[in-house]
Each structure stands twice: as C-alpha cells, then as structure tokens.
Simulated assay, not measured.
Amino acid sequence: MNIQRRKLLNLGAVTAAGSLLGTSAWAQAFPNKPVTLVVPFTPGGNTDIVARTVAVALGKVLGQSVIVDNRAGAGGSIGAMQVARAAADGYTLLLCGAGVIVTVPEMVKTSYSRSSFAPIGLVNKSSMVLLSRKNETRFKNFKELAAYARSGDGKLIAAHSGPGTPNHLALLQLESLLKTKFTVVSYKGSGPALVDLIGGQVDVHFDQVTSSLQHVKAGTLQALAVLGPAQDPSLPGVQTVAEQGFGELDGTTYVGVLAPSGTPKDVQDKLAAALAQAVKDPQTVNSARELGSVAFSGTPQEFARILDAEYALATQATKDGRLKAD
C-alpha cells in the first residue's frame, strides 16, 4: 500500500471516529436549550390543557423549558406540517391525537404522512360517550335508541365534532354495528354540537367525556353508552356498547407526542423516558382527572399500534366513501 493511500485511510478512520464521538456527545448533551411542543389546535381546548400540563412536568424532567406553541387550522394539519418540516433534533415536538397524523391525510392533501413522524409516547386518554337530551322521549336508553335508528335509514340525526375526528370515526363504527345509516351533521368542535343537541336540532352527539361531563352532571344531557372497551369512572353505571349486547366499539381518544422521523434514536429514547416520567407527575395526573380524562403513559410502540388501528379505520371509511372533508 502506498504512503498516500495509507494517509487517506488513516484520515478517514479518524474522521469517522470523531463523527461518532460527536454524535454521542451531542446526544448526551440533549437538551441544552428550550424544547417547543406544537399543539395543532387553539388555546383553551382539551388538547391544549393537556399539553400545558405535560409541558411543565416534562420541563422539570428535562431541565429545560418546554414551550407550548399553538398552530391551529385545517384539522390540525398546519401544526403537523410545521413539525414535519422542523429540524429532526428533538427540539420541536408535536402533541396531538392519532387523527391528525393518519386520518386528516386521508381527507385532504397534506405535505406529510405518518412516516414523517416518530411516536415518542402517549400522555392522555379520554372515553367517548354517546349523548342525548335528558328529556328525550323517543328513546330513554341505548337499546331504545338502537331500535329507533334501525327503524329507518336517516331517521336518527347524529352529530360529531368534525370530519376525521375520533368522534366521527366512532359514529361510523356505530353505523356499521347497527347496520343502518344516520343523518350525519358535522360541526367545528364539540361546543356548537352540544348547543344544538341541547336545543333539539340533533338527536345524539358523539363526544369525549372531557367536553360533555359538565352537562351530564347538570342533568341537561344523558349518557346512553360509553364508546370504548371499558366503563368510565366519571360516568358510574353507564355501560359500554358491548356490555349492552351490540358488539365491540372503541372510540377512546388518545393523545401523544411525536418527533420528526429523522430524530436520532438515542434522542427519541431520552424523550420517551422523560415523557413517561412527566405523565406520572401528580400535577399531570390531577389535571387530567379534573378534565374527566386519564393521564396515560404509553410507549412509542403502543402509540404506533394506536396509529395503525386508526389508520385502518380511516382507510376503510375512505374506500367506502364515508370519510370526506366538509
């Protein structure tokens, strides 16, 4: 081997070793500046409240400020696009439900897809519930509602909180279970839908317990069924759809944190461990309980499975022509 070639090989080995050492040292130093947690919805909503509580706890674990940045619009896709395009260094994260990642792209053209993100972990879950007015005379329980809905396609007027939301997917699941069609009314959020339900413009609404619990406690609305695998402690005695003999239906809403997909694995691991610790913080647990939800720690793999399940629902609904943007 000539001297010049040996020098080049030695130089390459030194450069490679230096590069690996630099990467390792950089990961060990993470984070050395504030982290931004993007919320793709407006301030004040359930997702935003969860984000702000988690941000405080996560900041304590990481030893750096975690700044919540609300980037609302287009069903959450504006905030998601911002994170997908961000530097994959662990300093820009996204907090949202699975729908923003896998369902919205099924309805509208986005510059991101599921592969644009790496799941870091779950932070919260809330039950979905089927609601009607307390003084409703046509059906006083879920079994009577099922019979009413089956008595004619389109007879039941059902509301949800927007195309592609978990509320919408739960509605589609119930249509399939009951083998009937509803007259579906789409709203921009739970607030307007609840107003119209109370006012009698719609018959039922698919909603998270976090949004509707106050109305159930006040006696304005009644919960006919929990749309999930288990009863919710906030609604004692309200059975699931399966418990009432109508098959399995899971509308549970999960919220988690994601990073751009190119984020180094050791940084992802550090974030996942910190997030799991933050979810167990007493302030996080108490805040979730006050909302009517649960501070729920889940691994990146568990979050990935939830993304898989919702993607399967969304793609099938799209093929059937039942999932469309307004």
Rank of each mutant, 00 (worst) to 15 (best):
V66F: 12
A51K: 06
L62I: 05
L62E: 02
G59H: 14
A17H: 09
V61D: 11
V50D: 06
T53K: 14
T42Y: 12
Q64C: 12
I78T: 12
V38N: 06
P40N: 03
V56I: 13
T15Y: 09
R52F: 07
V66E: 00
A13G: 13
A72V: 07
L62F: 12
T23A: 15
W26K: 13
S65I: 11
A16K: 01
F30Y: 10
L21G: 15
G45S: 04
G45T: 09
L37P: 00
P40L: 04
F30A: 02
V39F: 07
G22F: 11
V66N: 05
A51S: 11
L8S: 10
T15A: 14
L9Q: 12
T53C: 14
I49C: 00
V50M: 01
G73C: 06
P34C: 14
A57N: 03
P43K: 09
V35N: 03
L9N: 06
A17K: 00
V68F: 12
G79Y: 08
V50H: 04
P43M: 10
S24D: 12
A13D: 01
V35R: 07
L20D: 11
V39Q: 02
V66G: 02
N70T: 04
L9A: 13
A51G: 05
V35D: 08
V66W: 07
G75M: 05
P31F: 04
G45F: 02
D48V: 08
A25P: 06
W26G: 06
A27S: 13
N46H: 14
N46K: 06
T42C: 09
G12K: 15
Q28L: 15
I67H: 13
Q64A: 10
I67Y: 07
A17D: 01
T15P: 01
N70A: 13
G12D: 10
K33Q: 12
K33F: 12
G12E: 14
V35S: 02
I78P: 00
N32A: 03
A27R: 10
L20R: 12
K33N: 00
V50P: 03
T23E: 14
S65H: 03
G22Y: 06
K33V: 06
L37N: 07
S19H: 03
Q28C: 11
L37C: 02
